[in-house]
Write a protein that binds this DNA or RNA. Structure first.
Lengths: 350, 350
DNA sequence: CATGGTAAGGAAAAGCCTTTCCGTAGTCTG
DNA sequence: CAGACTACGGAAAGGCTTTTCCTTACCATG
């Protein structure tokens, strides 16, 4: 307190309004049976004094702090931006404040933060990550507060985890490319030890299969999540499988590399080849040539969903298991234009 | 509390250790005069019970919550990632927890969050933004807690603001390009109503002037912070001023567009032209062709610096004014290789 | 033996709020 | 007019710590 000025307490408000402390409390919180006139007098006094109730004292007596911990496993990643926005926004609307903790994938740090949050008596914790693969739960012993894992998955099935539906994302990409008339597909994606990579591929393949098409392994490239890998893979693809007319990329970074190589090799997108990315990351998708059609994981919605569930758990509802939140396709130019549909289904165009 | 389990209090620890509450408190906090044996007994009891002191109660009596509010003005932006990491990390090391509040450039939201933070009795507030231009202070009335503006600048000079030294960034870019032997410069950057844009240009020009070179306005392009603008500007530049051999870009996004056009027009980087970007944003710089040399604003350090200052202010030190934190050049390939220096100064190479 | 110093630890207040319980006054019912 | 409500508002407990001030007991000193 730089100016040594004490914050005004409810006692002062009560005195000024000429009522007891308890009456002031009731008036301010809309409880008890009070005359309207009394309430107004208290409110007036509070306003004049600029009264701000001390949340610390309130939490102490209510045994509810209206705070939650946001514990990000991996170091603050770009995925966490929309996710955290969704969480913070949803909680803030419910007057719940958020403690930010960056675990940096370090179990020791995570433990430290967990203790700190517990000590601050948070009402709940949301653990965020950047991978959908199962991770060890926050604690082996049952915690005194509910926990939800968002874009992160607890290995303990009795925990609640909320993940994007990567398989659905793969299906969306396939449906879009199919409806644009492409028929010979390739997939350039991230490392296969990511569950997300496998799920996206599975969804993509399943939808292709439904259309009687297949994606052989030789046209699936797996490598690091980098633009340069997109370029290398695309170059190899054009050499070995020039017949490919559509590429589904596991990330927008990869897609950018793919786009560059296609361009350099004289393959026009989307006239000759269709391309779909994943992540819908504005910086990469909006100004690429052509603008990149991409699967959006709705991370902000996902965060909001996780927050709502946590709130519900704090209310006492028990929740567990895995929730998969659907993806969405942001259509720009690179995937090609959907062919007009005949009355009988997907319009088959060569 | 899902299991209705009450947290263990210091009373239980004291009872178990066979001492009074105050003795337990002293033992746990390393205060007072206690026999070592007594201390150990208390610690043992605390461990066995899994005691976690209630930070709420502690804050109440100590009048210090060991929390600070992190109020981001603009919606969670990518710049905020390293900035927030720096802040959170520095504060966390000092056992201070961070409340995350996303103001979204909405004064009403900001007001709401400010009240919320004050009510929670934070010890201080750091306001983050994404522009260096002066903004109205958080509040017109003096606040009961210290505030520091990080990558954000209060219009009130009695506030403390911490900003990157954009002018220094411009100078770094110029020095690098000069030492690589380039002599005819252009600048493609963001909107001129950004103070950062003007500062970077000023620093760049000043260093050029020191070397007896100038950058005429006709070779300065100002436009939106977009890759597509980088492309458009580069195309125009090549048409009108083909003699230019070095381009300093106001952001990495712009630089990416510039690199693409140079490449397409057959100008090799860095053999024929040198390019330097700004922001050192990994996704864009590391995998571009060639990898992009870029000015790094040291945002993480900047955040840590702001946090340290805030901590100091919380300790009672008064601080105000503007701190400019230096930039740093991340040298990759695009700027060209510094020419070997002769004994007489910068080596002049065509 | 009176005095004083010191080490060890306890009692109680303070920090600020909510909530339960109770008293008072007024109104209604039979 | 007795008895039963209702509306209003106050007193006090409770939530968990820290900290200040005391009380003991012990030892040394003159």
């Amino acid at each position: 307190m730089p100016d040594g000025q004490r914050a005004v307490t409810i006692t002062e408000v009560a005195t000024r309004a000429g009522v007891s402390i308890s009456t002031a409390s009731k008036a301010l919180n809309g409880r008890g049976q009070l005359r309207d006139e009394t309430r107004e007098r208290v409110f007036a006094a509070a306003n004049e004094l600029g009264y701000q109730p001390n949340a610390l004292a309130r939490s102490l007596v209510q045994r509810r702090s209206f705070t939650v911990g946001l514990l990000s496993t991996e170091s603050a990643d770009r995925f966490n931006i929309p996710l955290h926005m969704g969480i913070e926004n949803e909680l803030g609307a419910g007057r719940v404040s958020v403690f930010l903790c960056d675990g940096r994938a370090d179990p020791l740090r995570e433990r430290f933060y967990l203790d700190s949050l517990l000590s601050r008596r948070v009402d709940g914790i949301v653990v965020t990550g950047v991978r959908t693969d199962a991770r060890p739960p926050l604690s082996n012993v049952p915690l005194p507060v509910p926990v939800v894992y968002a874009y992160s998955c607890s290995a303990d099935p009795s925990d609640l985890s909320v993940l994007p539906d990567d398989e659905h994302g793969g299906r969306l990409a396939a449906e879009h490319l199919l409806s644009a008339g492409w028929r010979t597909f390739a997939h350039i994606t991230g490392p296969m030890d990511f569950a997300a990579v496998r799920d996206r591929l599975a969804g993509f393949r399943a939808t292709l299969a439904d259309a009687g098409l297949e994606l052989p392994d030789r046209r699936v490239y797996s490598g690091p999540w980098r633009e340069s890998f997109g370029r290398d893979a695309a170059a190899d693809l054009l050499d070995r499988h020039p017949e490919v007319d559509a590429v589904f990329c596991g990330s927008d970074q990869v897609a950018r590399g793919v786009l560059d190589i296609l361009r350099e090799r004289g393959r026009r997108v989307p006239e000759d080849v269709g391309v779909v990315g994943f992540d819908n990351w504005g910086v990469l998708t909006e100004d690429s040539r052509p603008p990149l059609t991409s699967v959006d994981m709705n991370l902000q919605e996902l965060g909001a969903l996780a927050a709502r569930r946590l709130l519900s758990m704090i209310e006492g509802h028990r929740e567990s298991g895995l929730i998969r939140h659907p993806c969405r396709l942001e259509v720009r130019a690179s995937g090609g234009a959907p062919a007009p549909r005949g009355p009988g289904g997907i319009g088959p165009v060569g």
